[in-house]
Each structure stands twice: as C-alpha cells, then as structure tokens.
C-alpha cells in the first residue's frame, strides 16, 4: 500500500497522521484518506477536486504532473508527500 505523509503545518488545523492506502493513483490514495478524515479534504483540494494552488504533492522525489484529476499512478512501495508550497508571510 502507498504511504501518505502530510506536512506538519497541517497538523495545527486538522489531525492528519501518516497513513497507508490501497491505491493506484494519487486521487485514490487521497480519497482513501479523506474517507476516514473528511475535514482534511478541503485543506488539500478545493471543491472542484483540484489540488489547492499552494499545495504540492510529491510521489517519492517527483512532483505530480496532474494537479486537477490527480491521475498520476502510484505503486505499493511509493510514498506520497503532501506539503505546502511557498507563499507570502
């Protein structure tokens, strides 16, 4: 199962410990996490299902290419990192 890790900066808003998900794509992995943690959804993706503008998702060491449908594939040994992109102070 793919492992999903969220930025610690999200923790102050909503509990989001690392978790594992049976998933073939980033979308499936995130949906699996959101199913058990509905509040987390709106912090990572918007109402249209797109990654938020200032959120980055990496699969191991590469950034996802599809920020709208989140169709990038993931394997059982992959790690998905969800973290914030730089924005102003």
């Amino acid at each position: 199962m793919a492992r999903i890790v969220f930025t610690p900066n999200l923790q102050r808003h909503v509990d989001c410990p690392p978790s594992n998900a049976p998933a073939a794509t980033v979308r499936e992995a995130l949906d699996h996490v959101f199913a058990g943690n509905p509040q987390l959804r709106s912090y990572v993706i918007d109402k249209q299902g797109r990654l938020r503008k200032h959120i980055n998702v990496y699969i191991n060491d590469r950034t996802v290419s599809d920020r709208i449908a989140l169709s990038d594939t993931v394997g059982a040994d992959d790690e998905i990192y969800v973290f914030q992109a730089l924005t102003g102070g």
């Binding site: 709106s42 918007d46 109402k47 249209q48 299902g49 797109r50 709208i68 449908a69």
Partner: peptide
C-alpha cells in the same frame, strides 16, 4: 464553495 463542475479545469471557480 462553488458547486462542483462536471469536468474541472483551471478555470472552474473557487472561493
């Protein structure tokens, strides 16, 4: 939040 559109793209509205 704006209603979800059927096929989201970069132009779909977001608050």
């Amino acid at each position: 939040a704006f209603p979800t559109v059927e096929t989201p793209d970069d132009n779909a509205p977001a608050v």
